[in-house]
Simulated scan of single mutants.
Amino acid sequence: MSVRLKLLAAARNSTLLETRFGDDRPLDAAGWHEAERAAPVLCRLAAAELRYCSPSARCRQTGEALGLRPLAQPALRDCDMGRWRGRTLGEVTAADPRGVEAWLADPRSAPHGGESLLEFITRIGGWLDTRPAEDAAGLLAVAEPAVVRAALVYVLQAPPHAYWRIDVQPLSVTTLTGRSGKWDLLLEA
C-alpha cells in the first residue's frame, strides 16, 4: 500500500532578516492574517485521517488557525542548533564565522554543538519511514520549512548540500507518496 502525506509549511513568525535558529516564537500578526486568509483553500487538509505537526508554537498555531487540530510530533522538531539557538545568522556569522563556514560546507559538521545537517535529514527521514503502511484518508504534517526541506532531500535521495537549494514558502503544500524507503514527490495542479 502507498501512503499520501501532505507537508504544510507553517505560516510566518518573523521577516526573513529576523529569522532565528531554533525560533519557537508564535505566529506574528502577518502570519495569523496569512493563515486566516488561506483557510478557505487549506481547510480541505482537515480531511486527513492523521494530522501531525512540529512541536513549535508557530506550527501548532498554524494548525489551530486552519482548524486542523494536529498532534505534535517531537521527531518533527526543527534542527537542534545548540549554542546558536535564538540567534540570527548575522549574529552567529559575526561571532563565529569559521563555524558558520564549516556548517554550510560540511553536512556532518555541528560547530554549534547541536545536530549536523546530515543528522537532521536522517531524523526526518526516519519519521517518514515509520508512517503507517496504509492510509485510508491521508496524512498531514504542519512543519517548519526546514523540516519540509529535509524531507525532500531524504525522499529524493539528493546529496545533503541540496538542502540549501530548496526554498519552502510559508503555507505551501508538498505532497509525498510511497512507503518506507520508497518515497516520491507528487506535484499537483
Rank of each mutant, 00 (worst) to 15 (best):
T62S: 08
T62R: 04
A65I: 11
R69N: 14
P70W: 04
P70C: 04
L71R: 15
L71E: 15
A72T: 07
A72N: 04
P74R: 00
L76F: 04
R77Q: 00
D78W: 02
C79I: 03
D80A: 02
G82V: 14
W84N: 10
R85P: 00
R85M: 01
G86Q: 06
G86N: 03
G86Y: 03
G86R: 04
R87T: 02
V92H: 09
T93N: 07
T93W: 12
D96A: 14
P97V: 07
G99D: 08
V100Q: 09
V100A: 09
E101G: 08
W103F: 15
W103S: 11
W103I: 11
W103H: 13
L104Q: 14
A105K: 11
D106T: 09
P107D: 02
R108T: 11
S109L: 04
S109Q: 04
S109Y: 05
H112A: 04
G113R: 10
E115P: 09
E115W: 13
L117Y: 14
L118C: 13
E119M: 08
I121S: 11
I121Y: 05
T122R: 15
G125V: 00
G126K: 03
W127L: 02
W127E: 12
L128V: 06
L128N: 04
D129F: 09
D129V: 09
T130Y: 04
A133D: 14
E134Q: 12
D135Y: 05
A136K: 13
A137D: 15
L139W: 15
L140R: 14
A141Y: 07
V142M: 11
V142R: 07
A143T: 15
A146H: 13
V147H: 07
V148L: 09
V148Y: 10
R149H: 08
A150P: 13
A151G: 12
Y154C: 12
Q157F: 00
Q157H: 11
A158D: 14
P159T: 12
P160M: 10
H161R: 14
Y163L: 12
R165P: 06
D167I: 05
L171F: 03
S172W: 02
S172I: 01
T174A: 06
T177Y: 01
G178F: 00
S180T: 05
G181M: 01
K182N: 14
K182H: 15
D184W: 07
D184H: 13
L186M: 07
L187F: 06
